[in-house]
Structures are given as C-alpha cells and as structure tokens.
Amino acid sequence: MCSVLRQARSFLKLCRLRFLIPGLLLYILGFLLAVAYGADLELEKFVLGYLIFFTAHLSLHLSNDYFDQKADSFNSPTVVSGGSGILKAHPELARPALVISVSLIVISLLIAIYFQVRFAAPWYFFPLVLIGNGLGYFYAAPPFRLAYRGLGELSTAFAAGVLMPGMGYISAMNALDHNFLILAPAFLAYGVFFILNVEMPDAQGDREGGKVNLPAVYGERRAYHAVLLSISLGTTYFGALYL
C-alpha cells in the first residue's frame, strides 16, 4: 500500500501540476475576453473547452519528461525548469508516462470532436486542437523534436500566445475574430518572455544535452536581453493599442 502511495506521489510530481496554472489563467483570459465582447457565460462550454486544453497540456508535461530524459540528466530540476527529475529516480514510470501522455491526446481529440458537433464550432476548431496537441507532443518527441532544432521558443510562443487564450476565446465566442487577434502579438511577446525564463536556468545542461535554444546557444546574458526585448514589446504593444 505504501509503495503504491509512493508511486502515486512520484507520478503527481511527474505531472508538474504547478505548470498547469499559467495555462488555466490564459484559458480564462481568452474565455472572459469573449464574454466581455458579448459571448454568453456558459459553464458547459467553459468546462468542456478547458478539458480539451487540460488533457493536452498535461500530456505535454509527461511526453516532455519522457523524451527529455537524456537532456534532463545534465540538469538539476528547479521550481521553474529542468523537468521533474522523477524519471531519473523512477525509470519504471517512463513507459506508463508515455502511454498516459498519448492517451490524454486521444481524450483531448475525442472531447474536441464532441465539442465541435455539440456547439457547431467553426471548421478550424478541431485543426487548432490537433495543432496544439502536436506542438506539445513533438516539442521533445521525434521526428520533429522542436526544442532540439531551435524551434522551441517559436512553438511555445505560439502555444502560449495564441492557442491557450485562443482556446478559451473560441470556446465562448465560437469564433476567433479580430477582437482576439488584435491582442495576439502582445501575448506572443509574453510567450517568448515565459519560455526564455524557463530555459535560462537549464542553459548549460541543454547545451550538453543537445537542445538548441537561445540561452544554450548565445548564453544567459544575451538571452536576458531577449527577455527584456520581449517584455518591452508586450508593454509597447499595449501602449500602441491604448493610443
């Protein structure tokens, strides 16, 4: 019984649940933005839309830990980065992690199909969910391994800047219109800000593990300049919208 509890605890750590919070905040942001522009506040849409997003988001935590095992062996996990470190201590959890990750993607896609039919969502709803799941899984998984080809920042910025709030917006509004798209450039900038901050503590380990990202290639100092540039662009964009 004790060992089952210990394994369950390790598995919860593997899921890195704290990283789901920014995703939830972005989803709520998109949903409430749509409501502010006249969409109805429907609990069923909110919950179902978030379930699609939640399963995809959780899946990427598990698949990233599985496919990043080699790179993560060069890093020490921190509160904000470096993987969960659980698979190093519990390699027996690796296979279940991968199976659950793929199962979560299937669940996400099945709920998306139900949502599409139930609420007559626009034609691009399901493809967006598919792209979101693909970006999450192939961030570290072969054959694309986006984080190992210098595409990690771009894919995360797109996911955090467009897909995550976009999922909330489209769930409520049943469309992705200009009221959302006008804010997307600012959210993209904050997506870059987020991923660069997450990558910076792992720069040395990522270099040794073969990951190609800004801090690993150009060093922490230059990466921090990119952090400041991205955050400045976000504020400047809001300033331009205000004027």
């Binding site: 920014p22 905040l25 972005l26 942001l29 409501v35 904000v80 904050y190 800000f193 910076m200």
Partner: peptide, 24 residues
C-alpha cells in the same frame, strides 16, 4: 539567476491574474 527567473515568472502570473480579474 534562479531568483530573478522566479521573480519574472511570478510577475507574469500576477499580470495574468490582474487581467483576468479586470475582464471578470
């Protein structure tokens, strides 16, 4: 570096919570 990164991410969370509250 870790302290700064944690601060940056925490400030981003505060930013999102404030926008969500405003929209609410």
């Amino acid at each position: 570096l870790l302290r700064q990164v944690k601060g940056n991410i925490a400030s981003l969370m505060v930013f999102l919570v404030l926008i969500d509250s405003y929209l609410f």
